[in-house]
Nucleic acid binder design. Structure first.
Length: 323
DNA sequence: AATCGACCCTGCTCGC
DNA sequence: TGCGAGCAGGGTCGAT
């Protein structure tokens, strides 16, 4: 399941293969894969043809390629949904099932978007400048000066961590992820203390902190010894910091080993699996002993999916609504 | 206004 | 062997 560590693994692989390449052609093969591009698949194809890929970036689970020619620059925003893959292949290699978009590159290779469940897709987007901190605080647009290359706000910001970040417009509504300079755990803790919701819901809310999905939420909560149904405002500031720190650390470790693969739905750009599944402590371990205390891990329905936790290390709140 | 649950979508596994 | 139910789940949207 592509959460931040899986998307980062893919981003690294794509950057190595794609930066500097040009699109000979881009073929949308399934309408759902480009449904978020409102101008339609033909527009996407026409606008990308001939453009050069300048960089591959990410915030949370969103990935984008910056593609440009002399006249035009555009973000190709990619969301993998649940089962999306970005795969490199030699041109003419057999098409995989669920091939949704094929991009022909000028070095004779192909970039393929493969997606079994078609929750993901590509769309083109413009860039906006976003201020530091949580969404909603958009920086004023810099006045473009003739010959001003970078279009950055200089001097207005106190430190590099306060810098304006240039993001595709459709990505600007989500919060910084824990690996960005703009990530501010104090601000996230403040927000969590103001919110009236459960901690797991909040961790999954991409406008609070980006990149955490069901697997890494459960792992972070297990590490921090917090039950996911605890109310955020009832947790101490220290506990909230511990939980956020645990989330960052578990994702950092997962990135090191190429992410979490349960099956071939998540693989890197070369089709290889990640190895973090063998280091999971709670997710998917129903009935197995907790690695800390030996109590069997419990699975519980939550938001149309599952939560896994140790009922001993992670005490449920007193009146936890069960279903 | 913030919160919460339903829904989208496909393929695979499981139980009968 | 066939078949339907259940499940995987990130993001969006409507209801409250």
């Amino acid at each position: 399941m592509p959460e931040l560590p899986e998307v980062e693994t893919i981003r690294t692989g794509l950057a190595a293969h794609l930066v500097g390449r040009r699109f000979d052609d881009v073929e949308p093969l399934h309408p759902r894969a480009t449904r978020r591009h409102v101008l339609g698949p033909d527009d996407l194809r026409g606008r990308l043809r001939g453009k050069q890929i300048r960089s591959v970036d990410r915030r949370g689970k969103y990935l984008w390629l910056t593609a440009a020619d002399d006249a035009d620059e555009v973000a190709i925003v990619v969301h993998l949904g649940m089962s999306g893959q970005m795969l490199m292949a030699e041109r003419g290699a057999p098409d995989p099932t669920h091939l949704r978009i094929r991009a022909l590159l000028d070095d004779g290779n192909e970039l393929r978007f493969v997606d079994q469940r078609t929750f993901g897709g590509w769309h083109l987007d413009e860039f906006v400048d976003v201020g530091p901190g949580l969404p909603g605080k958009r920086a004023p647009r810099p006045i473009p000066e003739p010959g001003d290359e970078g279009a950055r706000v200089e001097g207005a910001m106190a430190s590099p961590s306060q810098a304006v970040r240039r993001l595709p417009e459709s990505v600007a509504h989500i919060a910084p992820d824990p690996f960005e300079d703009a990530y501010d755990p104090d601000a996230v803790v403040d927000l969590l203390r103001r919110k009236d919701t459960e901690i797991k819901r909040a961790l999954l809310d991409q406008t609070v902190v980006a990149g955490i999905g069901n697997i890494y939420a459960d792992e972070a909560l297990w590490r921090a010894e917090v039950h996911g149904r605890r109310r955020t405002k009832a947790l101490t500031r220290i506990k909230l910091h511990e939980t956020l720190f645990a989330a960052r650390e578990v994702m950092r470790e997962a990135i090191k080993v190429g992410g979490t693969s349960f099956d071939d739905l998540y693989v890197n750009v070369n089709g290889e699996s990640g190895y973090f599944s063998r280091e999971l402590h709670s997710y998917g371990r129903e009935g197995l002993p907790c690695d800390r205390c030996g109590t069997p891990i419990v699975r519980e329905a939550f938001m149309n999916r599952s939560s896994f936790f140790c009922p001993s290390c992670q005490r449920p709140p007193r009146r936890s609504p069960r279903r």
